[in-house]
Design a binder for these strands. Structure first.
Length: 516
RNA sequence: GGCCCUGUCGACUAAGGGUUCAGGUCGCGGCCCUCUCAAGGCCGAAAUACGAGUUCGAAUCUCGUCGGGGCUACCA
């Protein structure tokens, strides 16, 4: 089989949405599975929607996820502008390929597949409004084009004059009359559409000297020898046009195969997942943090504390499954297991809780060394006086409770700082006369323990308390309160063993002094 | 409105006409463990949108209805 070549072709109109990352991921997995190439192409034919920094964001997001393209981006993470052996189809930015497209648009006009149109946007908008008022649908196609201002209705001289003098004309595709376009989608199967429901799409804009998406996309996919197009479902309605364009160019025998992915839906209510949902429900919708021109900050998975492996994993499982009960996959495992046949056809509602669960699983898989590094990166100054062995011991004991590394400080702070205050409800509950008499005796016992390890302390404390018929719960909870300040944390003996005798005795003394 | 896609527990999904009074995971509830909080273990509630048809047999095939999504720009 020929080498598979797939592409991810986003527009730099803002930060890349997590749905876009998923599309990129599926392309990557599909290509890598068979040793194919993953290409990045920037579709920036609409200069009015260009957003500064968006292109860099896209590349950085892919890099963070570990799915950087083979072609289109250089080692420094820049879009390639000059052809080379590794990047033969450069430039990979459509705005820099403007010289390429015109000949293809002209070809279509010369061979009767397209025509020049001189209607203004205002005229067409007015016609659409009028049609709507009459509860009709205005479609620019064979039924209406003969009454409109275009090269089909004007004489050749007039057309030439307008082409030379006017600056706002377009080239439109001449959608055939009453034809069934028969298409295949790798996920959805066979699809048929009647061309009567389609309109004469604009392929070229004189004002910009640039093609629109449809033309640029087909031409570039062909020129870049793309074999498979995996893209979002929003492109499905354009598929007949794309088929017809391949046919018009005579490329139908080498046209790519298509797969249209369903969209990501909001966690609740109706509609597709949007930035608003993230703000409203408290989760990121974008891979990385983004600050727009107005200084408005949008949160990202990376900055929210997600591991890229977890993010990739959760994205992969949103609309695909391996057919087994396995849910945790490395990128390599995904590459081996992935198949378009197992991509789900219906839209996937995003579930933030499950996203957190994925991160928790990845946090648990981290080695102690990795976790210590994560933890120090977040809490450096507070940990200055503690060595890796101590920090690692604390984290090993507590990591099971965290979904994110940033939660670890709240979970473990009492190992690094003695409590400054004591939870009032717990004090009222446990610090009673009976216990006030017992605690000093426990302190005396602790002071005399020769081997201050977990098992010795655990057994010793239990024997001491039950031997004296003291109330186990009250005594232990009081000790916990004195050591931690609140009613939470690991086992008392575990804590004592890690903190050491001096620290334990000092915390007990402080608490007694403070609470009286 | 028109066109296209789509419809299994609250969510992600499995089951490709009989092996299914529908399985797993997240979430939810309960119990156990226990010095607290977690974690863990065990158990539980929870779905084939609806209606016809095909068939000995339908979650699975067909049609209709309803729901959801997308497109309907000189945006991508």
């Amino acid at each position: 089989m020929e080498k598979r070549r797939v592409r991810f072709a986003p527009s730099p109109t803002g930060p890349l949405h997590m749905g876009g990352v998923r599309t990129a991921l599926y392309n990557y997995l599909y290509a890598k599975q068979v040793g194919g190439d993953f290409i990045l192409r920037i579709e920036d034919t609409d200069s009015t929607r260009f957003v500064e920094g968006a292109e860099e964001y896209i590349i950085e997001a892919l890099r963070w996820c570990g799915i950087l393209p083979d072609e289109g981006v250089d080692a420094d993470g820049r879009i390639v502008e000059t052809p080379s052996e590794k990047h033969p189809h450069a430039p990979y930015r459509q705005s820099q390929r403007r010289g390429i497209y015109r000949q293809y648009a002209d070809y279509l006009v010369e061979h009767g597949f397209a025509y020049y149109a001189f209607d203004t946007a205002e005229e067409l908008a007015a016609m659409r409004a009028e049609a709507e008022a009459q509860k009709r649908t205005f479609t620019y196609n064979w039924q209406t084009r003969t009454q409109l201002r275009n090269s089909l209705t004007m004489d050749a001289a007039e057309v030439q004059r307008r082409l030379a003098e006017e600056n706002n004309w377009t080239i439109r595709f001449k959608m055939p009359e009453d034809r069934i376009v028969s298409m295949d989608d790798m996920i959805r199967g066979h699809i048929e559409v009647n061309t009567n429901t389609l309109d004469d799409k604009v392929l070229w804009k004189k004002a910009d000297e640039l093609p629109t998406y449809h033309l640029a996309n087909i031409v570039d996919d062909h020129l870049m020898e793309v074999t498979d197009v995996i893209r979002g479902e929003e492109w499905l309605p354009s598929l007949p046009l794309h088929y017809l364009l391949y046919e018009a160019f005579g490329w139908q025998d080498v046209q790519p195969r298509f797969a249209h992915l369903s969209l990501l839906l909001k966690p609740d209510g109706k509609g597709k997942l949007s930035k608003r949902d993230g703000d409203r429900l408290g989760f990121p919708v974008f891979p990385l943090k983004w600050v727009n021109a107005e200084g408005e900050v949008t949160r990202g998975y990376r900055e929210d504390g997600y591991y890229p492996e977890a993010f990739v994993n959760l994205l992969a499982m949103l609309g695909w499954n391996p057919g087994t009960e396995q849910e945790l996959f490395t990128l390599d495992e995904l590459t081996k297991a992935f198949s378009l046949e197992r991509v789900v056809k219906s839209g996937a509602r995003f579930n933030p809780d499950k996203a957190k669960w994925f991160n928790q699983e990845y946090l648990r898989q981290r080695t102690t060394e990795q976790l210590v590094a994560d933890f120090r990166a977040l809490n450096g100054d507070k940990l200055a006086g503690f060595d890796d062995k101590f920090v690692g011991g604390v984290l090993d004991m507590m990591k099971e409770r965290a979904h994110f590394a940033f939660e670890l400080w709240d979970l473990t702070s009492f190992f690094f700082e003695a409590p400054q205050s004591y939870d009032e409800a717990s004090v009222n509950k446990f610090w009673k006369d009976e216990v006030k008499e017992i605690i000093p005796q426990v302190r005396t016992y602790l002071e005399g323990v020769a081997s201050f390890d977990k098992d010795t302390l655990e057994n010793g404390l239990h024997e001491l308390i039950s031997g004296n018929e003291w109330p186990m719960g009250k005594v232990m909870n009081t000790l916990r309160l004195f050591l931690v300040g609140v009613s939470k944390g690991p086992g008392i003996a575990d804590m004592m063993a890690i903190l050491g005798k001096q620290e334990i005795l000092s915390r007990i003394d402080n608490a007694i002094a403070k609470l009286g």
